[in-house]
């Protein structure tokens, strides 16, 4: 049986889809090449990225399906779902049969699954648009560490490139050792290894203490409800939330220590 592999990029995956469909290859599974482990039963078929094939396939999908379907595919690509590639492939193939009706087939597993996962990724991205916290570094750059279930970094980068277009910033996906860098014009994503906690600016600490103060002042004590708070703000998102950390006793202590890990 054939296991198709690709370089891990979205374009690579679209190239692969295009190749499989035109050559009528039925992949048993689709895996990023670096994660592929050869075995006796299966045969690997690596399909290199071909930008023009990827683009024309993207156009084909956009014409046959809808912009919404393409967005679903991209969001699922960002997800942590195992086997996401083959799920995307089956959704795309089914879509080429159904055309614009694809997203109405809500009881079809291929569709329901893509919708669910896409929704999860979209929700996490939306949530992080609110929960991400920038810190001002002493070199004037803005730095935001994040930890997310799905790889929503590209969605965040695109959002903040419009919102904070006058700042130079870095959004650091800590567990994935990846960062989005913005230079006031465009952003790109790159691997980074961080060895020490970045130095914060003087004003940053003042700003953080104002925010913590505001955060505690705005709660109505007659309505305190930690359960409700956690329902909206699950603990796994607290690590980098300035308001959920104690004020650092000195410069650069405690709350940002774990950046170095």
């Amino acid at each position: 049986m054939i296991i198709c592999t690709y370089d891990g990029s979205f374009e690579g995956l679209l190239s692969l889809f295009s190749e499989c469909i035109t050559k009528n290859i039925q992949p048993e599974n689709i895996i990023e090449q670096s994660k592929y482990e050869p075995d006796l039963i299966n045969e690997e078929l690596f399909i290199p990225t071909n930008i023009s094939a990827a683009n024309s396939f993207r156009r084909r999908l956009r014409n046959a399906l809808s912009a919404q379907s393409l967005k679903h595919l991209f969001f699922v690509f960002l997800s942590a779902l195992e086997n996401k590639e083959i799920c995307m492939y089956r959704y795309a193939c089914f879509g080429l049969q159904t055309g614009l009706n694809l997203n109405k087939h809500l009881s079809d597993k291929r569709v329901a699954m893509i919708h669910d996962v896409s929704l999860k990724v979209g929700c996490e991205a939306h949530r992080m648009k609110g929960l991400l916290r920038f810190r001002e570094l002493d070199d004037g750059r803005y730095y935001a560490p994040v930890r997310t279930d799905h790889f929503v970094l590209p969605i965040l980068a695109s959002h903040f490139s419009k919102r904070l277009s006058a700042k130079q910033w870095v959004i650091h996906d800590v567990p994935r050792s990846t960062a989005a860098l913005f230079d006031r014009e465009s952003w790109y994503i790159t691997k980074i290894e961080q060895t020490s906690a970045p130095e914060l600016s003087q004003d940053e600490l003042h700003c953080q203490s104002l925010w913590r103060q505001y955060f505690s002042a705005i709660a109505i004590k007659e309505r305190i409800n930690p359960k409700l708070q956690r329902q909206f703000l699950p603990k796994r998102y607290w690590d980098y939330l300035v308001e959920m950390q104690d004020a650092p006793a000195q410069k650069n202590n405690s709350s940002d220590d774990h950046l170095s890990s």
Partner: peptide, 9 residues
Amino acid sequence: CHSWAADGR
């Protein structure tokens, strides 16, 4: 939404 206060708002 950017945060939730201790009263869940």
